[in-house]
Design a protein around this nucleic acid. Structure first.
Lengths: 121, 121, 121, 121
DNA sequence: GTGGTCTAGACCACC
DNA sequence: GTGGTCTAGACCACA
């Protein structure tokens, strides 16, 4: 798998996992792939995956069962949605709105771009 | 002045300058504050401001007159608008749209948030 | 049963057993629950319980009778008391005293906390 | 420097730092030694020190100024005292009291051991 | 100079 | 088998 270079890999992996949880592909209380498995399938060093897991564990999105593996926490789906939403609304949107004002992009144009995206992307 | 930690300070300063140019506050062919002045007022290392200037000069948004200072280039306003617009549409919007889908925020909700922002912020 | 994560599960189980012996609930020369029984009631892998038994056997606190099960050894009560006492005085107390100094908790406060504990806990 | 083997080195380093803050040796808003310096003086890998710093930063005990270094946070002294105190009272003391009951060590004996410690240790 | 990330490889305790 | 920690060494962006 290829990663962008403008963000740490371990965070990109965290995003991947969160998306899997959000989309319901990975159910709560389900075991995640092991550190080594993920490392191999993502073509990444195990340490990097370990870092992702530690990071997500701190956020209570996953938890560890010793000697067995990592599991999606109960309530993880809701939690990630809240966290992502907060981040989006508080950190992203203000900047987006500011840019829209500066660049004189109004809601109409935004809608067009959005429809354009949903068709092609 | 306080800076966010998810982006290099020198780029954040560049953004500040571009916004001043875009808003018309700093007219073309006008002299910018000196490196030292900016560094002091922004509470930043002069090297960092210097880096911003070099960066903007590379993009032809400002130019240097030896021994005198940096000036807003002719056509800078239009240029920054184009550059920012490209960046916004190609780099930002796709991620915004993706998040909207993931978080199930539709255009209606987006509009509400937008109006809310234009009133308060 | 839930276990703390800062100590191996098999040692926490060993502690449980020792407490039962110390308190007199499990008399000497009495048969312990089988590995399977304990594993089920503690919601733990049988291997883990097995490890606990091996560990306690090494310390002569329990002994094995082939095909029958594990038994509390003769003198186990006195033995565990001595072992625990050594451990407590040499390994625990120094750290406790150090913390008390660092956090400026004196003997008076310690007494209050102790009385508070004996009433509620 | 030598470390105990029953606890991760990076946590032992964190404890060292906290003690320096608690004792007032390292004042708030003061710069910590750099990662590399600490690594050398503690005879440890820089990554290990880095881990300690990340850990303490998550707890808001230290903060980072980019390109400059890590600093003791404002309010760090109070914060560490509160955190350590909570940990001590909620996680340590109950176990200590429990042990005292099991081993029949009363407050009198505890006092003797305490005085003995303050004299010799 | 500073921190931050990543890889590679090793060793350990635990289940 | 699992995770967790540590070392060594490299490279990069930033101030």
């Amino acid at each position: 798998m290829e990663f962008q270079k403008d963000q740490p890999i371990y965070l990109q992996i965290a995003d991947l996992i969160c998306e899997n949880i959000l989309s319901g592909e990975w159910q709560e209380e389900t075991r995640l792939p092991s550190v080594r498995e993920l490392a191999i399938s993502l073509e990444v060093n195990p340490n990097t995956v370990m870092r992702t897991f530690t990071y997500l564990q701190d956020q209570k999105i996953i938890y560890n069962q010793r000697g067995i593996g990592y599991f999606v926490a109960a309530g993880a789906r809701e939690l990630t949605r809240v966290l992502k939403r907060e981040d989006f609304i508080n950190a992203w949107l203000p900047q987006v709105f500011k840019m829209m004002n500066l660049l004189q992009i109004d809601l109409n144009e935004f809608q067009k771009l959005y429809h354009n995206y949903t068709k092609t992307g």
